[in-house]
Amino acid sequence: MALHHMREVGLKTIMVCLKRVVDYNVRVRPKTDGSGVQTEGLKMSINPFDEIALEEALRIRERGEASEVVVVSIGPEDCQQQLRTGLAMGADSAVLVRSDEALDPPSAARVLLNMIERLEPGLVLMGKQAIDDDCNQTGQMLATLWGRPQATFASKLELSGEVATVTREVDAGLEVIEVDLPAVVTTDLRLNEPRYVKLPDIMKAKKKPIDTVAIEDLGIDTTPAFQVLAHTAPEPRARGRMVRNVDELLAELRERGLVN
């Protein structure tokens, strides 16, 4: 590959953040003592929004608009599985910041800023939210600490020189903004459909490097901003009644004063 040429026309590095989460299809329950959630033995996956972020990075590289895609994860040793999946999808290399404690978004953002300083990416991509804590904060906080623009909830991303034009899924419809690079872009569902990993890619990925860093060695404050007191199950909504036909349905709705 003509690397020197690519540097002229596009970005050198895209950094993609992957979080290991309980798989989308698994229903999670709180532990009986409320100290956390039961995750033992559950299927774990790449956070689906992060997978979309990686797919987008790979497409940008495949268009010749970037030279390399590096995937970064923070978590226990087992995160290697998700990073391997990312490498099998097509990422060039991976970094695991080993942490046995789960980090809150401000701490994760501080760690990712450290990774930015190492990798000097021209673009950082990640999901708009992780489907475990549902916080929807890390990308925005990272962009702020970095002193760079953010474009959240992206459903379309176009790069041109030093500028990214991003279509964002907002409550009112679609908003188009322009941001100077480098920037953080967080991805929404409709940006793309991630590719399936093929067996030969999994074999090839085994040769790709995963660089491991112990979080203690980064000297970053990871004290949580808040104290979690308890995890509980939501109050169930009472089961209602079945009606047999539209007339019974309308009678019930009229009784409740909901329709005329």
Binding site: R27, R29, V37, P105, D134, P224, F226, A230, H231, A233
Partner: peptide, 28 residues
Amino acid sequence: GQVSDIMSVDGPRRFRRPVYAGNVIVSL
């Protein structure tokens, strides 16, 4: 930090919020 999606206020500094798509409620 930020408390995302406050669903109830249990005290001046205590809040509840949903995680895992509402399968679990966290008090913090």
